[in-house]
């Protein structure tokens, strides 16, 4: 099964949404909402939770009102994270915190969502497909989306150590796959 947050899956949902498919659109918005929480929480260490929720909502509204600017031939995540990044910069600017925005938006963000990083991410997705579903989801949530071990553990109803062990095993299996593949 394809992951709910892979480029391929999101793009498929976006294309359906552009044609007016409401169910697909709802799934898309719920999926990108999770991505946004991960994205902003990694970049707004000092921010309050209410602030982040505002930003997530504003980005969802922007996705909606600007959806006509999506080019169906190009990756969805590149388009979407460009909006997220713009909204983050705009958010800091609105507070007169231009300098802060620029320091926080260092190479980290710049390098995260260029085409090269995207293809790399798609490669990672492909690798992950080979893992058992549970390990795959743990690695995705913690290592790729950047959510905390504690949050992930409480969401799936397991202990933190179980999450850590799952991730560790998954990564080990990936490493072996890579070694074996070469």
């Amino acid at each position: 099964m394809m992951s709910a947050h892979s480029e391929e899956a999101l793009k498929a949902l976006m294309l359906l949404s552009l044609d007016g498919d409401e169910a697909a659109y709802r799934r898309l918005l719920n999926a990108v909402r999770v991505l946004l929480i991960g994205y902003y929480s990694r970049r707004m260490a000092a921010a309050t939770k209410a602030d982040m929720e505002d930003l997530v909502q504003e980005t969802l509204l922007a996705l909606h009102s600007r959806r006509g600017t999506y080019d169906r031939e190009r990756p969805f995540t590149a388009w979407f994270f460009s909006i997220a990044r713009y909204k983050l910069i705009d958010h800091h600017r609105g507070r007169g915190g231009r300098i802060m925005a620029e320091t926080e938006l260092g190479e980290d963000v710049e390098s995260d969502y260029n085409e090269e990083a995207l293809t790399a991410r798609m490669d990672v997705e492909r690798l992950l497909e080979g893992l058992p579903e549970k390990q795959r989801e743990l690695i995705r949530q913690v290592k790729i989306e950047g959510q905390s071990v504690a949050d992930t553990a409480s969401r799936i109803g397991q202990s933190e150590s179980a999450v850590k062990v799952g991730i560790h095993r998954g990564l080990k299996a990936l490493a072996e796959k890579l070694r074996g593949g070469k």
Binding site: G20, E22, N30, R33, E53, Q57, H64, G68
Partner: peptide, 26 residues
């Protein structure tokens, strides 16, 4: 979180198809 759910509801309700080449046309 509740509010975000409401926003998603209203956005879904407001969804209209976007024609191809919408930007070019604009």
């Amino acid at each position: 979180m509740r509010k975000t759910d409401n926003i998603i509801d209203s956005l879904v309700g407001d969804l209209k198809p976007v024609p191809r080449h919408a930007l070019e046309r604009r």
